[in-house]
């Protein structure tokens, strides 16, 4: 039984990590960009530059984390937590609970 389910589990793990890397990683990069762009209080074009330039580094770091984490659960948790934080900051600065 275990011998049959083990490769299946392995594949499921890889699929979960891939999804975390691609979808989770991009979402994290997008929300860190918006959070930075809003938090920096710079002139618009400069704020967009400074916030967007490192976004691909964030994306790449998330991808590497997704495949370096010990389990697929940890991979997801490690990407989801900062994504929610960045989304929260974005929501707060973009109008917050008032609007």
């Amino acid at each position: 039984m275990a011998a049959v389910s083990s490769p299946a589990r392995h594949r499921l793990g890889i699929a979960a990590r891939t999804l975390a890397a691609v979808a989770g990683g991009y979402t994290l990069a997008a929300f860190t960009t918006t959070a930075f762009a809003l938090a920096l209080r710079l002139p618009r074009s400069e704020a967009v530059m400074v916030a967007t330039l490192p976004s691909f580094l964030v994306f790449a770091a998330a991808v590497v984390w997704a495949f370096a984490a010990r389990t697929a659960w940890r991979a997801w948790a490690g990407i989801l937590a900062p994504t929610l934080a960045a989304a929260g900051v974005t929501w707060w600065l973009h109008g917050g609970p008032g609007s």
Binding site: F36, L38, F56
Partner: peptide
Amino acid sequence: YMPWGGRVL
């Protein structure tokens, strides 16, 4: 590829 910074601003 990453238009979101400009969108929120």
